[in-house]
Nucleic acid binder design. Structure first.
Lengths: 105, 105
DNA sequence: CAAGACTGGTTTGTATTGCAGACTAGTATG
DNA sequence: CATACTAGTCTGCAATACAAACCAGTCTTG
C-alpha cells in the first residue's frame, strides 16, 4: 500500500538519518547523545542502516581510543529524499477526493 | 527521544488517518480499497484508532447490509496536526547545527 | 432452493523487531 | 588497583503487524 521505506520510517533511524543529513559526519557519542538511544540500540540501528547501504561507518582511532564515524551514503541521501517526498505526499492536506460512501439506492 | 505518536506513525494507520482527514466520513469498503489492507488488518487498525480516541466508528445499515462509517474525531484531527508538525520538524533540512566530532587534543 | 458472492467483521498464529540491560574488551585515569 | 570511558555484542521480553482462516447474515442467480 504505502511506499514508505520501513528502514527509514522507524523513528529511531529517522532521527539518525535526519541528524546525519545535516552534518557531514558524526561520531558514535554524538549520535548517542542527540538521539537519546541506548548504546546497544544505536549500534543495532547503525548496523541496519549500514546493511541497507544508507550509511557508511568508519571505525578509526582517536589516539588509541576507538572513534566510530558515520556518514550518509549517496544512496542514503537519495532514500531520505524519496522518503521525504512520500511523507510530504501523505501529509499534504489533499483536496476532497471523491465521495466515499455510496448511499442506499 | 522522538515525539512521534506511534499510533499514528504506523504506515497503515497513517494512511487511514490521512484518508479520513480529507473526507468527512468513509465506509469500511472504501478504506479497504484505498488502503489495500486486508479486512482483518483494517478492522484491527480501526479498533486501535478508536481506542486511542482518534476515530469514531458508526455501525449502521444500508437496507439490511451492514455499513460501517468512520470519521476522524476532534482529538484525531488534533493528533494528526501535531504529528504533521513533528514530522515536518524532523524532515526539515536543518541548517548545519554544530561540529559533532571532537578531534583529538 | 442451493451455491456462491458480498458486507463487515473476529480470531489465531507467525514472524519481526524494537528495546533495555547485561556482558565484553581494550584504554585511560586517579 | 579500581573505576570509567568508547564501542560495541548478546539476550530476552513484549509489542506488533500481518495474512489467512473462520463466521454470520444478506443478496443474487441459475
Amino acid at each position: 500500500m504505502s511506499e514508505l521505506n520501513r528502514v527509514i520510517h522507524e523513528p529511531a533511524r529517522l532521527t539518525i538519518i535526519a541528524l546525519l543529513s545535516s552534518v557531514k559526519e558524526a561520531d558514535f557519542l554524538y549520535l548517542l547523545r542527540e538521539t537519546g538511544l541506548t548504546k546497544g540500540n544505536l549500534s543495532t540501528h547503525l548496523i541496519r542502516l549500514e546493511e541497507a547501504g544508507y550509511v557508511e561507518i568508519e571505525k578509526t582511532f582517536r589516539g588509541k581510543i576507538p572513534l566510530t564515524l558515520v556518514r550518509l551514503s549517496p544512496e542514503g541521501k537519495a532514500a531520505f529524499q524519496s522518503y521525504r517526498k512520500s511523507m510530504k505526499d501523505i501529509l499534504e492536506p489533499s483536496k476532497m477526493r471523491r465521495v466515499p460512501v455510496q448511499l442506499p439506492t
